[in-house]
Simulated assay, not measured.
Amino acid sequence: MAAPMKLVVKWSGQEYEFTEVSGTDTVKDLKEAIHEKTGVLPQRQKILGLKFKGKPPGDDVQLCALNIKPNTKIMMMGTREETIIAANAKPTDIGEVVDDFDIEDEEVATENREEYLQKVEHRVRKYEIKVVNQSRPGKKLLVLDVDYTFFAATNMKWIEVKMRELGVAENPNYKIAFMVDSRACITVHTQKYGIIETKPLGVIWGKYEQYNPKNTIMFDDLRRNFLMNPQNGLKIRPFREAHKNRYHDKELMKLAKYLRDIAPLDDFSHLNHRHWERYKPPST
């Protein structure tokens, strides 16, 4: 019998030790072991970093063929079924929908498609995030869309210019940790809407160990930008025609209260951000 191996699997901000797997076990066996500890079904799992002949290994490949070193840490991406169901829940209070679509069964499953997760992995390796200020240890992550949340811009040059013009980059009341432009996005194909672009938070999670699905929330005016991380997205109304609406649009100010209310939570993954206006913090 082959000697036991020790592996550490990182998922959703936590590390899980596996000490009873061996080289004769297959990738399928490893996925079953991961399922027991995390609750993520094997077919929902995407294990990053394992290669067999230059490609992701099939389920029948033995671990000894992957040249895994002792105490290797590998990252797993995947979602529990109950989280997918919650993300796909249809709200009863749908308001105005502008240039967008609701996430349906196919769209929710997009986050687990291997070809898209490989794109995310590629971005993690190749894309350079524009660091503005060092992240503070132990703090949660708020990702703010730029287009129609602040203004219209997509490439880093214009983002930097507008951030300076608006006084965001050097505001004394807060500090922006980093900026990400459209090169970090990936394209995905949906049966109903064809090829579209989306914003995978996995690029940030892959570069910053302190951030993960449990402590991240993203504001965006387009729900399709959440396809790779539907549980972490909060759809806001687009900020259009600022010269007319700047004194009437108070949504970000109201969302500030929501952020204060959820800030004490250790885990955001159980929240339904579609109903953020109804949220009541736990009694203290």
Rank of each mutant, 00 (worst) to 15 (best):
M5I: 07
S12T: 01
Q14H: 15
Q14Y: 13
E17L: 13
T19H: 15
T19P: 09
L30E: 07
L30W: 05
G39K: 02
G39M: 05
V40N: 02
Q45Y: 04
F52K: 06
K53Q: 12
G58K: 15
N67L: 10
N71K: 02
T72C: 01
T72W: 00
M77F: 03
T79N: 02
R80W: 00
N88C: 12
D100F: 01
D102M: 14
I103N: 04
T110Q: 01
R113A: 13
V120L: 13
R123W: 15
Y127H: 04
I129W: 04
V132P: 07
Q134S: 14
Q134C: 11
S135T: 04
K139H: 13
K140T: 02
L141M: 09
V143Y: 01
V146D: 00
D147K: 11
A152G: 14
W158P: 05
I159G: 00
K162T: 09
E165L: 09
E165M: 10
N171D: 12
M179G: 07
D181P: 06
D181V: 06
R183I: 08
I186F: 02
T187R: 12
Y193V: 01
I195F: 13
I195A: 12
E197A: 14
L201G: 00
I204N: 08
Q210P: 13
P213F: 05
F219W: 09
L222H: 08
Q231D: 15
N232W: 05
G233H: 01
R237H: 12
P238Y: 08
R240L: 15
R246N: 15
Y247I: 10
H248W: 12
M253T: 11
M253C: 13
R260M: 07
D261A: 07
A263Q: 14
D266A: 09
N272T: 01
N272I: 03
H273N: 09
R274P: 05
R274T: 06
W276F: 08
E277G: 15
S283L: 10
